[in-house]
Design a binder for these strands. Structure first.
Length: 165
DNA sequence: GCCAACGTTGGC
DNA sequence: GCCAACGTTGGC
């Protein structure tokens, strides 16, 4: 039996790497490096599987919101930037033999037909319980339920079929 | 630029 | 192991 597909939300600052940047990337794919939070690391290392759906969220944007959808194309592996001398994400305590920070690769699937702002998300009943909308939630990698995924597809004007990759 | 919320660090 | 100080996130 095929494992059940799961869904995740990844935050990115569009000034640094927007959904359009992902669409323009080779194979519309990027590695999700730079995450330096243990909970987010654990999710990428243990839980994100090839084929899982990814909601691409623009944070620190005007306005913040959902810009598109992607999928996981490679499961957790060491983030090389932790070992790069002078790199902004270098971690001097990281051990080559036992890397501390992990990342996944994601590939763009479909841009939102309509960008849906955080403000609008907050008004949607079906999204009440969404991790993103909980007070004090700052994680850059978060779970999304199947029901939330469906609601987000509807809100962004993207047919379910386009996302059932 | 402000600041609330939260995570990490390091002295003890 | 506590907890104050500090750093970061991210909406506003």
């Amino acid at each position: 039996m095929a494992p059940r597909r799961q869904y995740w939300l990844l935050k990115s600052e569009p000034d640094a790497f927007s959904f359009d940047d992902l669409l323009a990337a080779p194979k519309r794919t990027t590695c999700w490096d730079g995450v330096r939070n243990y909970q987010a690391r654990n999710t990428m290392r243990d839980d994100m599987k090839v084929g899982d759906g990814v909601v691409y969220y623009h944070s620190n944007a005007k306005p913040p919101g959902v810009a598109g959808f992607a999928k996981v194309v490679r499961e957790g592996y060491p983030d090389p930037t932790q070992f790069e001398k002078g790199h902004a994400h270098e971690d001097p305590k990281a051990d080559l033999a036992d890397p501390r920070w992990m990342m996944v690769d994601i590939q763009a699937v479909q841009a939102a037909e309509r960008f849906v702002s955080l403000d609008e998300l907050r008004g949607v009943k079906a999204l009440e319980g969404m991790a993103l909308l909980q007070r004090g939630q700052r994680l850059s990698v978060q779970p999304v339920s199947a029901a939330e995924w469906k609601a987000l597809a509807r809100l962004t004007g993207v047919p379910q079929a386009a996302l059932s990759v």
